[in-house]
Structure formats: C-alpha cells, structure tokens
Design a protein around this nucleic acid. Sequence first.
DNA 1: GTGAAAGCGCTAACAG
DNA 2: CTGTTAGCGCTTTCAC
Lengths: 336, 336
Amino acid sequence: MKPTIYDVAKGAGVSIATVSKVINNLHVGKKSKEKVLKVMKELNYKPSVLASALAGKPTSTIGFLLPDLANPFVAEMARRVEDRAHERGFNLVICSTDFDSEKEALYVSLLRQKSVDGFILAGSFKNVEVIKELLEEHVPVVLLTESYPSLSVSSVKVDDFIGGYEVASHLISLGHEKIAVIAEDANSSQERIRGYKQALQDKGLAIYEDMIVTSDSSSEDAERVAGELLDASDPPTAIFAANDKLAICVLHAARERKLSIPDDLSVVGFDNSVLSKSTDPSLTTVGQPIQDMCSQVVDFLIEEIEGKSTTKQRLVMLPQLIIRKSTGVCRLKNKI
Amino acid sequence: MKPTIYDVAKGAGVSIATVSKVINNLHVGKKSKEKVLKVMKELNYKPSVLASALAGKPTSTIGFLLPDLANPFVAEMARRVEDRAHERGFNLVICSTDFDSEKEALYVSLLRQKSVDGFILAGSFKNVEVIKELLEEHVPVVLLTESYPSLSVSSVKVDDFIGGYEVASHLISLGHEKIAVIAEDANSSQERIRGYKQALQDKGLAIYEDMIVTSDSSSEDAERVAGELLDASDPPTAIFAANDKLAICVLHAARERKLSIPDDLSVVGFDNSVLSKSTDPSLTTVGQPIQDMCSQVVDFLIEEIEGKSTTKQRLVMLPQLIIRKSTGVCRLKNKI
DNA sequence: GTGAAAGCGCTAACAG
DNA sequence: CTGTTAGCGCTTTCAC
C-alpha cells in the first residue's frame, strides 16, 4: 500500500499532527522536522490530495471548458493555459462543450462534484444561467476570449471590435467595396462584425446585410456557405472570415471555383493560428496575444481562488493585423 | 453550504447508509428510495467525488500525458480521447510533457497524488522507468501511438512500419530514387524510417544514411534541417517527413528556395492532420484511424481500471496512404 | 513545540 | 430492508 501520514509519523516517532505541520510548512522543531523529512523521503511518501482536499484544502485543479479542443487555435490556448497553470501548481481538467448549453451545464456540475477550485470558461459560453449560479455560489470563474457586459465576472479577451475594424479598413484601402463576412455564432464574432460595419460606415461604404452570413462550426457547412457567397450574381471581391478555420474553408471553396487568391478574391482570417501560416497563399489574419491572455486568465483565476483579490477585472488586449499573401488590390479597381 | 449526505438523510428521514445505497443503486425499499430521490432533487444534492474516492471508490478521472497539446494532430487525438472518456463517465486531466523525461515523471507523480484512476501515455513517452513503476504498482496504464516491446503494457497504435513502407513505395513508383527523411526523435518515427528503408531495399535502391535527418520539435529547427537537405550538392527529389508538422516546415523551406512542389520536389507527411488539408499544394500523407484508436485506448484503460480484464493487449491498426497534390513524378525521370 | 481528538463526506461491513 | 459504526488520509483546534 501507499504510505500514509501515519506511516511517516510512526517512522519518525512523532504524531501525525507534526507530520502534517511539516507538510504544510508550519513551525516545527528543527529536529522533528528533519526526522520527518528523512522518513518521508525513505518511504517516498506523497500526501493524498483527496484527503487534504476533503479536510478543507484546495485541490489545485482548474476546470477548463472550451468549445472544441480539436480546433488548433483553441488547442494552442489550452496549451498556454496549461503552462501557466502548471507554473502556479495547478492541473487542468479539460472539457469540450461544442457550444452546447447542456454540455456546459453538465460539465460544470460534474467538475464541481470533483471539487475543482475554479473554472476558466473559454470561447462563447452559451449558458449564462450556469455562470450566474457559479457567481452566486462564489465559485471562482474567469472568462477567456469573451465577456458578459451584464455580469460581474472577470475576463480576458482581445478587442474584437478593433480587430474587425482593422480588417475592413485594410480591405477598403485595397479598393474593396463589397466585402462579405462569414462568422460562427459566437459573441466575439458579433463584435468583429460590428467593427467591420463601423469601418465601412466611416468610409462611407454601403453595408450589405445579405453578405454577412453565419455558419455552424463544421467545415462542410462553412464551405457550403462560402460557396453560396461566391456563386452570387454579384459576388464579393473580399471575404472576411471571423476565424482562420473559416478562412480556410473559404480558401477551399474558392479553389474549387478556380478563383485565384488574392487576384480574384481577397481573404482575411482571425486568430493567427498555425493554420494561417501553412496555407498557400499564407493568410492575412488578426493576431491575438495568446500567451499573455492565457497567462492572465490563469493569474486572475488563481487570485480569486486564493482569495487574494476580490475585485473583478476585465482585461482587453489589442489584436494586431498581420498582412500576408491572401489579400491584394481589388481586381475591379485593378482593371480600371 | 453545499448539502451533504447527512442533509439528505435527515430530510428523507432515513440513515445516511440508505442514502448511500440509493446513490450507488443498491437495493433499497421502494418507498425510501423515492423519498430520498425526492429530497436529493429538492436540495440539488450532488455527492462529493472527493469523499467517495477517499472511501475507496474511483475518481473517474484519467491522466492523459501527451507531448504537446499545441500540435494539431495531438489536439485532435485529445479530443477523441476526451469524447470516449466522457461517454464512459470519465474526465481527463491533460499534461503536455514536451518529450521531457523529468516532466513526465513529475506529472505522473502529481496526478497519482490526485488519485487519478489510470494513465494514457501518448506519443513517445521517454521515461521507461516511470512506466515500469506504474506497472509494478498496478496502476492502470495504456500507451497510445507507441508500444514498448519489452514491457507488458497494453497499447494502441498504427503500424508505423507499413506506413513508412507505403510512403517510400509510392515515391519510388513515381520514379524517385533519392528520398530524404526528416523525423523527430520518437519511437514511432524510427519505425516509419525502418519501413521506408525496407521499401528501398526491396526495390533494390541504395540507402543514403546522410539523407535521414532528425529535428527537434521546434519549427525553426525543422526548417533549418530541411534547408540543409535541399542545399546539398546533390539534393533529394523527394522528402518524407515523419509527420505533417515537419512536412509543412519542408514546404516552407522549399518555398524559400523557390522550389515548385511537386515539380521540383515531392513531399509526404504523416498523420493526416487538419494541417495537411489546408496547405497548398495539399499534402500527400498517411492517415491514422484516430477515432478508432482513441476509442480503443480509452476502452482498454477502463477495462483495466474496472478490473474486468487483466490481460494486456497490443492493438495495431493499419494506416492509409492518402495521395494528394504534394507528390508527383520525379523531375529527373521526367526530363529524360 | 507537540499531540489527542474531532471532523471533512462517503462507503462498507455488520447487526438488527 | 435499514441503521450503526468504523474507517479512508489529512487538517485543525485546543490542551499540555
């Protein structure tokens, strides 16, 4: 059997209380301490987190809910969160929710039964009721990549509005006037679209609502929707995809139609995920400071867990337009 | 405070033993059962996994160690494992080890303190000592994507040898004779290389050991190494990258040197990750039945955890060559 | 500075 | 069929 605190106590000739104290770095006589430490090493003793947690200590594990781990951008965030969490002595239980309200509720409930110390909710978390409940019951929660204006919850995200604004401005500066948008049904996407519209408006361009379409998170659907956009009688000269994954679907749809990029069509993505670097032409996209954002969410959450800070904070970081090869001068302007 | 089993017992007018029994679906009088169920619902009672685990029950959580969650292929596996695990009522604690022996040992130790029910070790797990220790102490372990001939541990993987063999055969059939290989230092890669060599040998071709190079897992290094290969005085006409990530680095290196693919150089990857579909030209690669593999590892592990099966098994699945646009007839043959 | 003892919430004999 | 009770391994008063 694995050694317990009793084995150590017996081996060191002290009480379990003393052993507990050296485990938790409380004041213990030097001699006892050394003896205990020695025995712990000999027995290769490791305290049970289960037991200490049951007795009131934290479990040092964080529940991390995200839309889909298979999405490379999400996976990269997960890795950054994981790294920072480990640095701070925490482990991550990861659950993919697929933007499904019920899964969200289920996983939160499950993880609470397992006594995680807190939650990081990433992506567009649908189930606001669940967030409210967590807040009411004082379970530490932090949102990543989104924020709820009406909820008093800490969050870290990029300024999606500006991101969308810059994308549209870039495209407009290249002479594009008919710029379509393809997005998923996420809050962040809506913000990006708002930014895009603002830029159009600022430049005195018309906004075509029918060129702003939504796709679910499957690649098939995205390609279909992109195709419809391209097959229109008066197709757009540029498409702004609300994330890189969608942008690649647009690329595929364009390729199928023998459209050359960026000559026939400019495409912009969002996220600057690994995907955007490997496509050809490489994708113009909007970079998010993933590392910093993830580091910050973890720190915010841990602050709450440790009760060091009770003030909620919303951190908004600035995105950066990364111009690569998928955008170019509008072909119409070009011909004139 | 969260309700406990005592609250439910009091509310239902029974003892905690009875409540425990209905929780665990043991025989209980119909009336008591209904009453208890009712009270549980009213109180929104959820048993504490901590407490039940401390009392001997499993935690229903699996430790999943993998090389790097930020790698899209790995992330996709993680997602499949997660799905199957959830179906079976388990959660996943995920840790990225970066092929680092010490991290491997550290995480295993940490997760054992947290009483995970078992481990899935994916990728090239370096620290054999740790695996041995787990085995000796009868901690359920299953390997994914690799296997140790000398260890009695269950595993699920693809037949890397055949994969490598098919890649080389395909390239040879296109007229290539100088086929370089770029790999990471993983067991699976070595197997792929063995298959590649076998194919060369079977076709009576020479094996150039200096065209078989190793890169660490960083993209920079891979590009550098690929560059050296291409800058050689008598460069290869085809490069077999042991995984898609490396293949993309090769693509980048080739693009920098204005080489056209597949006309000047054929490139093959391995894994059929999302990356391979989004590159241009799309990547010829080897597909692994990820879904089945991941489903199986989880099932193997859970069998061990539940003690239903004590026989170890090694499952080897067959990979599939997926021919896309990055491979073509050898330019030398072409010109002749 | 150290130890005895009462919990933490649940399971599992063992009686009844 | 149901309740009593002794743990599971650790933390934490509270005396000594």
